[in-house]
Each structure stands twice: as structure tokens, then as C-alpha cells.
């Protein structure tokens, strides 16, 4: 029972308390790059969710069934990047086939998930925290959902910023960065949620 509760808390904490973008400051590049429209932000969020969920599980398997038995855990970063890059390639192919419009909207940010620190970050945190396979998967999905929550909220705000009277010096990215900072402060409020 405690284990299931732990899983639930892990999911909640990875979405809200340890939000990857707003608390850990990982994955800022797509967060700022693909957040001008809610629809593309959602698409990016889904792509990242898919990659993060799958990457967590596969990197877990690679770590404990390849790297540790062979005594080469120092190859972790290299092996993980390899797995993530292959996964992103796969996602790109699927997207090109199933939704060319979304593929075009995501543009260069899709292949950039390869080097997205959020994806590598979640894989490494999984190992560091010594999660088991289920926890790893839940943490990966939770982190990605947190990313999606942050980017969709941010895109919603940015859509409104477009039509707001903002001084010339602040319009565009400056006001975007200030907004991101304010959102981060707001998410600090979740820190007391789980003890």
C-alpha cells in the first residue's frame, strides 16, 4: 500500500513540486522556442512525453542490464544520448508520416529533443535516485507531463501577450522570460505540498 502511495506521490511531485522546467530549469530551449501557440506547444509536449516515457524505461534497462554487468557505468551519458537520439529519430519519422503539419510547426525543435537536457536529465535522475523500473517509468511520464503543463500554460499566456500593450523594449522574448520567471515563482508554492 505504501508502495502505491509512493508511486502516486512520485507522479505528483514530478509534475508539480519538482517541475522540470520551472523548478529544475531543464528543457528551457523548447520551453521558450515552441511556446508561441498552444496547439504546437501541446504537440511538443506530447512528443516529449513519448520520448521521456520510453527513454526512461530503455535507459533503465541499458543501465542495469548492459552498463552495470559489464562494469562500464561511466559510459552512462554516451549510451543514454545514443538511446535518446534513436528514439527522437523514430518519433520524427512517425510524426512526418502521421501529421506533417505538426512536424512542420515543431520544426528544428523536434530533432533538438535529442539534446534536450530534460530527457537526459530524467534518465540520470532515475539512476541517481535508484528508482525501480515502475518508479522510473512513472517519474519519466510525470516529468514529461510537468514539462507539458508548463509549456502549455506558458503558451497560453504568450498568446495573450501578443495582443497586450507591451512597451517596445519588453515585447517578444524579454516579457516571455519575465513571465517564465513569475511562473517559476508561482510553482515555488508547491514546494510544501509533499513532505
Amino acid at each position: 500500500m505504501d508502495y502505491i502511495l509512493g508511486i502516486f506521490l512520485l507522479l505528483l511531485s514530478s509534475i508539480l513540486v519538482n517541475n522540470f522546467v520551472l523548478s529544475r530549469f531543464l528543457g528551457i530551449c523548447p520551453f521558450l522556442g515552441v511556446s508561441s501557440q498552444v496547439t504546437t506547444a501541446t504537440g511538443m509536449g506530447l512528443a516529449v512525453t513519448f520520448v521521456m516515457g520510453l527513454a526512461s524505461v530503455i535507459t533503465y534497462l541499458v543501465q542495469y542490464f548492459v552498463l552495470v554487468p559489464l562494469g562500464i557505468p561511466y559510459m552512462q551519458t554516451l549510451a543514454f544520448i545514443l538511446v535518446i537520439a534513436a528514439l527522437v529519430q523514430f518519433v520524427e519519422m512517425v510524426l512526418m508520416k502521421s501529421s506533417p503539419t505538426l512536424h512542420q510547426a515543431l520544426g528544428v525543435y523536434l530533432p533538438l529533443i535529442t539534446t534536450n537536457c530534460a530527457v537526459l536529465g530524467v534518465a540520470i535522475i532515475n539512476i541517481e535516485e535508484q528508482y525501480d523500473l515502475l518508479q522510473t517509468f512513472v517519474h519519466g511520464i510525470g516529468a514529461a507531463l510537468g514539462f507539458m503543463l508548463a509549456i502549455v500554460l506558458f503558451a497560453g499566456i504568450r498568446e495573450r501577450l501578443e495582443t497586450s500593450p507591451i512597451g517596445k523594449a519588453f515585447s517578444g522574448f524579454p516579457i516571455g522570460l519575465i513571465t517564465a520567471g513569475l511562473m517559476s515563482i508561482a510553482f515555488l508554492g508547491f514546494q510544501g505540498l509533499i513532505k
Binding site: V66, L67, L70, A79, F90, M93, V94
Partner: peptide, 21 residues
């Protein structure tokens, strides 16, 4: 071992990607 492990991993993923493409 590291070379074989990473090479093998790369080869496996490459094959899977080739199939997917």
C-alpha cells in the same frame, strides 16, 4: 567491452531505425 557494448547498442538501434524508416 565498452566498445563492444556501445557498438552493439548503436548497431541494434540503427537496425531498428532502418526498419522504422
Amino acid at each position: 567491452w565498452p566498445v563492444a557494448a556501445l557498438g552493439g547498442l548503436g548497431l541494434l538501434l540503427g537496425l531498428l531505425l532502418a526498419l522504422a524508416s
